[in-house]
């Protein structure tokens, strides 16, 4: 059920990217999609009644959740930070050149 929810969030992000006209809203759509996928990956690793996979002195033979998706999510967060920083920088530069955030007015390339 929750898997389905993450897919719905993903589609909301895609809808946002496809229909919004503001550059920053498009960026937010991308971020929503990335979070939906991260959510999905975390869910994949969940085991019923599992605990966080941290090995400490007292805990032994506990039922851990799968740690691999968590590592994947961490990596994908790092990557999305890099993308986000760059895309925001591009947006600011576009605003300097065109003085608008509206994609319908940013149309010098066509053909």
């Amino acid at each position: 059920m929750l898997f389905f929810l993450s897919f719905v969030v993903f589609l909301i992000g895609l809808y946002c990217v496809a229909t919004r006209k503001n550059l920053l809203k498009i960026v937010m759509g991308i971020v929503i999609m990335e979070y939906a996928v991260n959510f999905f990956l975390i869910l994949l690793g969940y085991r019923m009644g599992g605990v966080a996979p941290i090995v400490t002195e007292g805990v032994k033979e506990a039922k851990f959740v799968d740690p691999l998706p968590q590592a994947m999510v961490l990596t994908s967060i790092v990557i999305s930070i890099a993308t986000l920083a760059f895309i925001v920088a591009i947006c600011i530069r576009i605003y300097q050149r065109y003085h608008t955030f509206d994609v319908t007015e940013i149309r010098r390339l066509k053909g």
Binding site: V17, V37, P69, M72, S76, T83, I87, R97, I106
Partner: peptide, 27 residues
């Protein structure tokens, strides 16, 4: 320049969607 930024933004949006889809599929 203005055109280059516009192209880069377009490219980034499309390519980010592609990356997200690929990650979804890997998951």
């Amino acid at each position: 320049e203005a055109e280059e930024l516009e192209a880069a933004f377009k490219y980034m949006v499309m390519s980010s969607i592609a990356s997200v889809l690929i990650l979804f599929s890997v998951g």
